[in-house]
């Protein structure tokens, strides 16, 4: 399972970066989505995929009944998902507005502020 997820992370990273190198703005945004999902999976995988119960000791018991799963990576991913969602929403509006305002057709036309 670990290997499978690792391969998936690699594929998502590759696809994301490939899409971001394209000149079409929509592809750039989809590439960003792939990238952030790849990272979420990577956090999950790097912290170890274990099946287990939540780390809460039942009342009256001295220790956990079975092996537990680490809740922290899930908390990290949850935060990362919320942030990447917010950023994505902003990026979508920004790209939409930019290509409505500027005469540019794609990203390779954006050269006015370059040096």
């Amino acid at each position: 399972m670990n290997t499978l997820i690792a391969v998936l992370v690699g594929v998502l990273f590759g696809a994301g970066i490939y899409l971001m190198l394209s000149r079409t703005p929509v592809r750039l945004i989809i590439g960003l989505v792939f990238l952030s999902n790849a990272i979420n999976l990577l956090i999950f995988d790097a912290a170890g995929l274990t099946r287990g119960i939540p780390p809460i000791i039942a009342s009256g018991a001295e220790k956990l009944a079975r092996s537990h799963a680490d809740p922290l990576p899930q908390a990290l991913i949850l935060t990362a998902i919320v942030i990447s969602f917010g950023v994505l929403a902003f990026a979508l509006v920004l790209f939409n507005r930019t290509f409505k305002t500027l005469p540019a057709r794609d990203l390779s036309d954006l050269k006015a502020t370059d040096t």
């Binding site: 971001m20 960003l32 950023v87 920004l94 305002t101 500027l102 954006l110 502020t113």
Partner: peptide, 16 residues
Amino acid sequence: KPQLEGAIKYVTLNLI
């Protein structure tokens, strides 16, 4: 116009 164009570059590279 220049702001929007600058923002696209700034946003994309900072997200990376």
